[in-house]
């Protein structure tokens, strides 16, 4: 009996994530003596915070049983549209809300196609992924747009309480807010029911399609926020920013204990997984590993994570 309890505790997602964080810190400090520097680690979170912010909204979408592969393209396209408008002479302060509207609109297109045609969202967003990036390419070609105003650039160098970078703060705040939304509100419970069994949810008068479109809009909105952040961090906009980011985002969400088929998940878990990815990538960067080797490691990590979660699932089904 007691043994079973321990097993159930060990198999809980929060426990596995915490142990993964510990392992990644240990591996990182073994790999490089410069790794264990709090200031440096906090600063390196800013590079990936954009993707982490998308991953939070993505978690909610995946809990509702859908997926969006066009996130990185939405991020790029909203950044490219406003940088093009900025070139045309519009003030940046006005353009930030414009970017958010564009991102939501692109998300709404995904959501409407998915709910109206009942096609799998994987397939639809595989198409919009190349469409959105293609439009971004049409808009600004292969050159980069820069020369943004001084107040706009360098969000990664702004700190809260002189230590926590602003993007990281936003990430943590939203992780907590979404977690509260999921666990404490009626909306969150309904959302989980959509992912668990959308037919049952429909019969219990949950507007499944409305929920799904709203979540796609949310993911689009957060992708646009990430786009604005990346412009501010890089001081430029280009058609290939964030390319391949969907791999990191999906790895974070799945590593965070969200079930691929929906119905289970936590944004705090995703935030924890964000730190794992940051630690792993930072350690690799400190060891001077090339970008492509990092890509292989993250790709391999995704597969290992999937294997582990299916293993844990089968153990849980057997013993608990």
């Amino acid at each position: 009996m007691n043994k079973q309890k321990t097993l159930a505790f060990v198999l809980r997602p929060s426990f596995t994530i915490l142990s993964f964080i510990l392992i990644s810190i240990i591996v990182g400090s073994v790999m490089s003596p410069y790794f264990l520097d709090l200031w440096y680690l906090l600063n390196s979170t800013t590079i990936y915070a954009e993707l982490g912010i998308i991953a939070l909204a993505f978690t909610l979408l995946m809990i509702a049983g859908e997926i969006d592969l066009s996130i990185a393209s939405t991020m790029t396209l909203s950044a490219c549209v406003i940088s093009r408008m900025y070139e045309a002479g519009l003030p940046m302060g006005l353009l930030i809300p414009v970017a958010l509207i564009i991102g939501s609109f692109l998300g709404a297109i995904n959501g409407l196609i998915v709910t109206k045609t009942r096609l799998p969202s994987l397939i639809v967003t595989l198409g919009t992924m190349s469409l959105y990036r293609g439009i971004a390419q049409v808009l600004i070609g292969d050159k980069s747009v820069s020369g943004f105003p001084k107040w706009f650039v360098g969000i990664d160098n702004k700190y809260f309480l002189k230590i926590i970078p602003v993007p990281l703060l936003i990430l943590i705040v939203f992780a907590i807010l979404f977690e509260l939304l999921l666990t404490k509100t009626f909306y969150g419970r309904k959302l989980i029911s959509v992912g668990l069994n959308s037919n049952a949810a429909t019969y219990s008068l949950v507007h499944v399609d409305k929920y799904k479109v709203e979540l796609f809009v949310l993911v689009g909105l957060f992708s646009a926020v990430a786009g604005v952040f990346s412009m501010s961090r890089l001081h430029l906009a280009k058609y290939n920013i964030g390319i391949g980011g969907e791999l990191d985002v999906i790895t974070m969400v799945l590593l965070g204990g969200t079930a691929f088929e929906g119905g289970r998940g936590s944004t705090l878990g995703t935030a924890g997984a964000f730190f794992i990815i940051v630690f792993v990538r930072t350690a690799m960067m400190l060891r001077n590993m090339s970008n492509h080797a990092q890509m292989a490691v993250v790709g391999g990590l995704l597969i290992v994570v999937l294997m582990l979660s299916s293993l844990i699932e089968s153990i849980r089904n057997k013993f608990c």
């Binding site: 791999l247 492509h292 890509m295 292989a296 490691v297 790709g299 597969i303 294997m307």
Partner: peptide
Amino acid sequence: LLRLPSVIITLGTMNLFRGLMFI
């Protein structure tokens, strides 16, 4: 082995294979 949609698994191997190729 994993009984998951092949898109997710091949998203992983897509990056894994390309990374290994560079190495």
